[in-house]
């Protein structure tokens, strides 16, 4: 597996993928970073990691995405990875209602371990399984509105909305950070590079809530 290091970027954002076991987090990640999907994927043990850069306006935004094991027991290890995250995709499976019910607990996990102003996208995955749907779009949308998160349904299998979901999260983070940089007259093209992933102080991301919620 060849590794491509794309070193040219203007912003580096840390994003976490969380949600119950088996909702499709790993396949969302490989779909977004390598455009691959596997019906024969293994359950994730611990954490996995991948990166991808996208273009927002005229800037290169690099996402460093941490994919975590979904089983409750693993939170002992995975919650450490929430620290410094400026974006999160909280994933449920549209065919398993219980995974949607558990979103609340995942949001609480985020609240406990991350900055309150992290950009969160609620993601209903496996939307291709139309005949098995157990969570309606309306319910999910209403929930997202209440919780001030963005919302999108995706299908990693059909590559539906996957690109959009990640891009939306990254763009929203970018808006906040670049706006903040403009406000204080900083040069946004000279961000910290390398492993430092803590993009913003509390203030940086606080604009997100104003910027809007629940676009889908």
């Amino acid at each position: 597996m060849a590794y491509r290091a794309d070193d040219d970027y203007d912003y580096l954002f840390k994003v976490v993928l969380i949600g119950d076991s088996g909702v499709g987090k790993s396949n969302l990640l490989t779909r977004f970073t390598r455009n691959e999907f596997s019906l024969e994927s293994k359950s994730t043990i611990g954490v996995e990691f991948a990166i991808r850069s996208i273009r927002v306006d005229d800037k290169v935004v690099k996402a460093q995405i941490w994919d975590t094991a979904g089983q409750e027991r693993y939170r002992a290890i995975t919650s450490a990875y929430y620290r410094g995250a400026v974006g999160a995709l909280v994933v449920y499976d549209v065919t398993r209602h219980v995974t949607f019910e558990n979103v609340e607990r995942w949001l609480k996990e985020l609240k406990d371990h991350t900055d309150a102003n992290i950009v969160i996208m609620l993601v209903g995955n496996k939307a291709d399984l139309r005949h098995l749907r157990a969570v309606s779009v309306e319910d999910a949308k209403a929930f997202a509105e209440r919780e001030y998160t963005f919302f999108m349904e995706t299908s990693a299998l059909e590559a539906m909305n996957v690109e959009d979901a990640f891009t939306e999260v990254l763009t929203q983070i970018y808006r906040v950070v670049s706006k903040k940089a403009l406000d204080i007259g900083d040069d946004p093209a000279a961000p910290p590079r390398g492993q430092t992933i803590n993009v913003g102080s509390k203030d940086d991301v606080s604009a997100v809530k104003k910027a809007g919620c629940c676009s889908s």
């Binding site: 611990g46 954490v47 450490a80």
Partner: peptide, 21 residues
């Protein structure tokens, strides 16, 4: 210096005794 800690790569070494990947 690179802020790598073993939970990023070695958890599965122990949890599955090298049988995972």
């Amino acid at each position: 210096e690179e802020m790598i800690n073993p939970s990023m790569y070695a958890s599965q070494w122990f949890i599955t005794v090298f049988s995972y990947s």
